[in-house]
Structures are given as structure tokens and as C-alpha cells.
């Protein structure tokens, strides 16, 4: 269990200027064992600094960092080095040692073993991350995804209980990102390792995290299970993140471009329907169309699986008698669908 309490970290500005940068402001966070926890925020939000406070690569100016009840900030240097061996970390730029082969890189953190034991351990790790065939390659000969696999193997060398991932997929293409995330998910299941994922990509959080925190200018503005954050964002920043991943954000573009698709005729009304907590196995749209005698024209639709639950929305143009449209909207609202009228062309 990771317990951060009232963590504050300031940085001196450049050239000893007076203006301090408040990277992390009074942040408290609890991460349970075996969890995959996401910390999402735009760059500069302080998430990298916060995660470095967990293994004390950054020493917080104030606050407490407890891992399994042990106060990290009070450890003697030697004990801190040993504690760090149980906290693996991977990075956006992989940070493999260029003058060492894959095998030597993964063997780096291993100590107190014979050479044969080390080689056996490294081979086990490489097969765990499915890159056994590359043990004598140098990092410069590997692709980004392969490098990150090696980095993960190296981070796991001392059987850590926690794995910190600092933008670990941000330098990778979408397909490789998917593969690495799948690997992290598998490792979490196989080893029971707690994983903390730092990212600016909502996709990543949606893909592998159960719980997440949203960070903005040094503070955690929202935290909870990913489904709740994603389906019902409370803070503007969170909403922006959710929008970045949703197809429905294209609506704004269409409206800005004055696309004929979103031109309304008299009597028509355009609304965004967001399903929250909804059982969308019910055929809401076709039911509403028949029941209330309105025509429903779906412009955009986006339905996804988040943390094992369906979440989504559609942008729909309603056409019909005004009172029928109103009745249909009320019906949707009664089914826990979040209705947002975007444009209304008014009555005939």
C-alpha cells in the first residue's frame, strides 16, 4: 500500500529567481496493493514529480510517503537504496544503458548472485516480457517497444512490489502502446504487482486502470474509479481529457466548419446523449423513435468499454412534433441518459 500524505514539492526557478515553482501542492493519495492506478494530467501538471516522490527520486519539501507502513522520508541512505530495489520504475525514454547488451542491462540491478544465477534470472525475466531472442543485442539495435520490454524486465529484476511507469508509452506508436499496456496488465495479474501509471493520454488510463487521479497544476482535482471519472467528469480539465478520447468531440469541429451534416432545418433539434451507468442493452433509440413518433438521425456515435463497463454517447438530430421531441427527451432523461441540447432550430 502506498500512502502519500500532504506532499508538497517546490522547485527554485531559473537563475535563483525568487519565483518558486509549486510542482506538487499538498497532495494526498492512497494506492492499494495489486491495483493499477493511473495519474493523468497535461504536461506540467506535476504528475512526474509526484510519482518521483514515491521512490524519493524527488524528496518532498513536506508530507509523508509511506510504503507498506514504512515512512520512506526517514530512511537512512543505505535503507533507502534497498527500499528502491522493491520499487521498479520505467521511463518514457526507456533509459537503457547504451554500452551494455540487453542481458547486461537486465542484470544491472542484480546483486549477490553467481554469474550463472544472474544469467538464469535474466533469461526468466526476458521470457516473461517476451523478448528472449534479443539478449545479446545492444539497445540501439532495438525498436521502441522492444526497448520498453527490456526496461520492464530490468525494473522487475529484484521482484518489486510496485512498478512506477512514467509516461512509459508516450514515445510509442498506438499499436506498440497497446502491446505494452497488455503486458503491464498481464504482469499485474501474474505477479500481483501494484502499478502506478503516469500519462497524459486518457486512452492509457481507460485501457488498463481501475482507479485514477486527475492532476492539474500540482493538485489532484479528481480521484476515484476510472468508470466514474470517465462517465461523469466533474472538473473542466477532466472533461477535456474525456473529450480527447471521444469521437463525439468531432461535433465541435463539424459545427465550426458549418458542415451540412449539422445544419438544422426548422423544427429540428440536435442533442448529445451520454449514457451513464446505463444498461445500454435496452434499445433506447429505436424505442423512443417508435413510441414518441419522432425521427432520430444519428450523426455521431461513440460507445466504449471502460473498466469493464459500457460507456458512450451519440449525437442525434430529432425531427417531429415539438411535444413529441420533448417527450422523447424526457424519456431519455428518465433512463439515466444525460441529455444536452446543442442546437435548436425552433418550432415551425
Amino acid at each position: 500500500m502506498i500512502e502519500l500524505k500532504n506532499i508538497t514539492k517546490n522547485f527554485q526557478g531559473d537563475n535563483n529567481s525568487k519565483n518558486e515553482i509549486h510542482a506538487v501542492k499538498n497532495v494526498s493519495l492512497e494506492i492499494n496493493d495489486g491495483e493499477i492506478f493511473g495519474i493523468i494530467g497535461f504536461s506540467g501538471a506535476g504528475k512526474s514529480t509526484l510519482v518521483r516522490c514515491i521512490n524519493l527520486l524527488e524528496r518532498p519539501d513536506a508530507g509523508s510517503v509511506k510504503i507498506d507502513g514504512v515512512e520512506m522520508t526517514e530512511l537512512k541512505p543505505r535503507d533507502l537504496y534497498n527500499a528502491r530495489k522493491k520499487i521498479g520504475m520505467i521511463f518514457q525514454q526507456f533509459n537503457l544503458m547504451p554500452s551494455r547488451t540487453v542481458l547486461e542491462n537486465v542484470a544491472y540491478p542484480l546483486k549477490g548472485m553467481s554469474k550463472a544465477e544472474k544469467i538464469k534470472r535474466v533469461r526468466d525475466l526476458l521470457s516473461l516480457v517476451e523478448i528472449s531472442d534479443k539478449e545479446n543485442f545492444y539497445p540501439s539495435q532495438l525498436s521502441g517497444g522492444q526497448k520498453q520490454r527490456v526496461a520492464i524486465a530490468r525494473a522487475l529484476a529484484n521482484d518489486p512490489k510496485i512498478l512506477l511507469c512514467d509516461e512509459a508509452t508516450s514515445a510509442l506508436d498506438p499499436q506498440t502502446t497497446g502491446a505494452i499496456l497488455q503486458l503491464l496488465k498481464d504482469l499485474n495479474k501474474k505477479l500481483g504487482i501494484t502499478i502506478v501509471v503516469i500519462t497524459h493520454e486518457m486512452e492509457v488510463v481507460k485501457n488498463i486502470c481501475r482507479k485514477a487521479a486527475v492532476m492539474h497544476s500540482g493538485e489532484i482535482i479528481e480521484t476515484g474509479d476510472v468508470f466514474t471519472i470517465f462517465s461523469n467528469p466533474k472538473h473542466e480539465v477532466t472533461r477535456n481529457f474525456v473529450r480527447t478520447t471521444s469521437n463525439l468531440s468531432k461535433l465541435e469541429i463539424l459545427i465550426n466548419e458549418q458542415s451540412p451534416m449539422v445544419e438544422l432545418k426548422n423544427g429540428e433539434l440536435m442533442a448529445r446523449l451520454i449514457y451513464i451507468y446505463a444498461d445500454i442493452s435496452e434499445p433506447l433509440i429505436s424505442f423512443a423513435s417508435r413510441e414518441f413518433d419522432v425521427e432520430l438521425n444519428i450523426i455521431l456515435a461513440d460507445v466504449e468499454i471502460v473498466a469493464g463497463v459500457m460507456v458512450g454517447g451519440t449525437v442525434v438530430i430529432f425531427r417531429g412534433q415539438r411535444e413529441n421531441i420533448q417527450a422523447a427527451l424526457n424519456y431519455f432523461a428518465s433512463k439515466n441518459v444525460n441529455v444536452e441540447v446543442i442546437k435548436d432550430a425552433g418550432v415551425f
Binding site: L57, Y81, R84, M89, N95, L96, P109, A151, A155, N158
Partner: peptide, 8 residues
């Protein structure tokens, strides 16, 4: 940074 994170 990587070496520090590995407890060096």
C-alpha cells in the same frame, strides 16, 4: 535516474 531508481 534509472540507476537511482534501481537502488544504486
Amino acid at each position: 535516474e534509472a540507476a537511482l531508481s534501481m537502488g544504486s
